[in-house]
């Protein structure tokens, strides 16, 4: 029972960060129908930003979210305005090539500056835990990152559901042309959506940096993970990505505990295939007609 509870709790905690990554990707896809293959690389840039702030300015990784969120928002908005807005009406393969290319440029630029050595951020709490009782222990950095994730997700939901700009983003995702007829500047919405998606990915990068190796190619793992989460939850669905993230987190930690950590990806992808077989549009997805 202790093992079960332990892995359930760890799974939920890490799943929160996964959700953040997935929400970012799904938001971008929902608004622009562009699949962002640079998503993991944007997360990687967020990790290095955290690393720089920690190493050169001594700013705690969790506190640095306050700086990296707006910086990554601006970075994402810039990418959208300068590059991606130009290919919105292009064929899908051109959009894919563009985002893959942007990702390659990011990872190689980082490699040029920092070399491909692994970096780690060691904080006083990096490996500290506390006992929950019953033999279950919770890692402090995971718990803090989960709390930050929850707060950001809550604010994001409020923004999308209650504010005019948030509703305009959803309207653009549901019917771009009709949104234009409402007087919504859809290019601006795209910039905000890509900025938000990047800020969420960058924040996820910051949050995992105390517990994860930082290296220029780390992004590809997360791009793949983000796809699994998003497709599992239903492309374009923010609720689906939240669910998908937590589900993948739990599945990973359960399979690591009960089978072996080497097999966790096998279990995750099997679950993924199973869901797609039973519900091809994803958990919260609507079949598009």
């Amino acid at each position: 029972m202790a093992v079960f509870l332990q892995s359930l709790i760890s799974g939920i905690l890490i799943g929160g960060v996964y959700a953040l990554i997935g929400i970012g990707l799904t938001l971008i896809f929902g608004v622009m129908r562009v699949i962002n293959f640079a998503h993991g690389d944007i997360l990687m840039v967020g990790m290095y930003l955290t690393y720089i702030l920690f190493t050169f300015a001594g700013i705690d990784p969790f506190v640095s979210v306050l700086i990296s969120f707006p910086l990554m928002f601006i970075f994402g908005g810039f990418l959208q305005k300068v590059f991606i807005n130009r290919v919105l009406n292009a064929v899908a393969q051109n959009q894919i090539l563009l985002t893959i290319g942007l990702g390659l440029i990011m990872s190689n630029t980082v490699m040029l500056i920092f070399t491909s050595d692994y970096k780690i951020i060691t904080t006083s709490y990096s490996s500290s835990t506390f006992q929950l009782g019953g033999g279950v222990s919770v890692s402090w950095p995971l718990l803090i990152s989960f709390l930050i994730t929850s707060a950001i997700t809550a604010v994001l939901y409020w923004f999308l559901l209650k504010t005019d700009t948030g509703q305009a983003i959803r309207a653009t995702a549901q019917d771009r042309e009709a949104a234009q007829l409402m007087g919504i500047n859809v290019k601006r919405m795209s910039i905000i959506a890509f900025g938000l998606g990047s800020a969420l990915a960058g924040t996820a990068g910051a949050l995992i940096s105390p517990t994860y190796y930082i290296f220029p190619q780390v992004g590809s793992t997360f791009t793949l993970k983000a796809f699994v989460i998003t497709v599992l939850g239903g492309m374009g669905s923010v609720v689906g990505a939240t669910l998908g993230g937590v589900l993948i987190g739990i599945t990973e930690s359960m399979s690591a505990a009960y089978i072996s950590s080497g097999w966790k990806d096998v279990v995750v992808f099997s679950l993924f295939l199973l869901v797609l077989l039973l519900k091809p549009s994803g958990l919260m997805g609507k079949s598009r007609t």
Partner: peptide, 19 residues
């Protein structure tokens, strides 16, 4: 008609007065 399908009637009306 091009109603926003996953928004409520009220939210659709709100989008009408987005400008």
């Amino acid at each position: 008609r091009r109603i926003f399908p996953e928004m409520t009637v009220m939210e659709n009306l709100r989008m009408g007065s987005y400008v």
